[in-house]
């Protein structure tokens, strides 16, 4: 770090434009970000892009290898794999994004309250958070699915619960750090009310790392959704989901491996893209230390 701080130094170091446009600056960022934009567009416009009806069965043409007209082949019921992968993006992205949105909202509220008010409340919250922190996300999700039963709703909540601790910890760390800053002290001395300080000063300054980690968590959420779907505890047929597709493909592992390979490739590439783009965002926002410190 140079001795110059603030906007001028950042401008000279090439920090121009919005963080997102900076993240798109490198070629890695362009590829990863471009892929994610494409994926979201595909999910949104799925009904217009899919070459076939994702649920249409054609039993005479089951387990067809990739080729024409079924670009990625068909599964045991003769359903078009490409169409199902495209619709699977809808399920996967919406479930994961909803779950992480819930998780961020709850985690930020808990973390901000714990960090701001401190005392017994903070200790109580952090004890529970540290407790869930040591548990693998899949185990937390499975406990939750055991309680409300299989399905997409419970998958959503299971993912939300699994990552709640992460956001609570992160937000609390940000608030605790910000509370020591001079401008907060000044605001307090000017007589600002707690809700004003929290909402107008603390949270806006704490939100960047939470958003970026949230984005990374959407990637983890996609894997978790696929895993639960693979176990048959997530999306129930005929809803197309990447995990459920792979699970039905295991029965025909030898006959039609493409039913497993393609959804898996999409999951893997998506998660890698999320991670790469998230990394670029962290660099663009210059918040690596703030994320590590929590």
């Amino acid at each position: 770090m140079s001795s110059m701080t603030g906007i001028a130094a950042r401008w000279m170091a090439g920090y121009r434009g919005t963080p997102v446009s900076r993240a798109f600056g490198s070629w890695l960022g362009k590829i990863a970000g471009g892929f994610l934009v494409l994926l979201v567009l595909t999910a949104i416009f799925a009904p217009w892009i899919t070459p076939f009806d994702y649920a249409a069965q054609d039993l005479t043409n089951g387990n067809a290898p990739p080729g024409w007209p079924h670009l990625l082949g068909t599964d045991q019921f003769g359903r078009d794999v490409l169409s199902r992968v495209i619709y699977g993006a809808r399920t996967s992205l919406s479930v994961s994004a909803t779950a992480i949105a819930i998780s961020i909202t709850a985690g930020m509220t808990l973390g901000a309250a714990a960090g701001y008010f401190g005392g017994f409340f903070e200790r109580a919250v952090m004890t529970v958070v540290d407790l869930t922190w040591s548990f693998p996300d899949i185990l937390i999700a499975l406990i939750f699915v055991a309680i409300i039963g299989p399905g997409l709703t419970s998958t959503t909540f299971a993912i939300a619960i699994a990552y709640l601790a992460q956001f609570t910890r992160l937000t609390r760390a940000q608030i605790v750090r910000l509370k020591r800053e001079t401008f907060i002290e000044a605001t307090i001395n000017l007589g600002a009310k707690p809700h004003h300080i929290l909402l107008k000063h603390l949270l806006p300054n704490a939100i960047a790392p939470v958003i970026v980690v949230g984005m990374l968590a959407i990637g983890d959420g996609i894997v978790l959704e696929a895993t639960l779907g693979f176990f048959g505890l997530g999306a129930q047929p005929p809803t197309p989901s990447w995990g459920a597709m792979m699970s039905s493909g295991t029965a025909q592992l030898f006959l039609s491996p493409w039913v497993i390979i393609f959804p898996g490739v999409v999951v893997a590439v998506t998660v890698i893209a999320v991670n790469l783009f998230g990394d670029e965002l962290i660099r663009a926002l210059d918040i690596r230390d703030r994320i590590r410190g929590s």
Binding site: V223, A226, F230, I260, G264, V267, A268, N275
Partner: peptide, 29 residues
């Protein structure tokens, strides 16, 4: 490191089965 921390475990397992157990038949499925 990137691949190791992002590729879903169950899919990797399936790929391993496809490649080492089904194709090469080195290990039981």
């Amino acid at each position: 490191i990137l691949l190791g921390s992002t590729v879903p475990g169950f899919w990797l397992a399936l790929l391993m089965i496809l490649f080492f157990a089904v194709q090469l038949q080195w290990f039981p499925v």
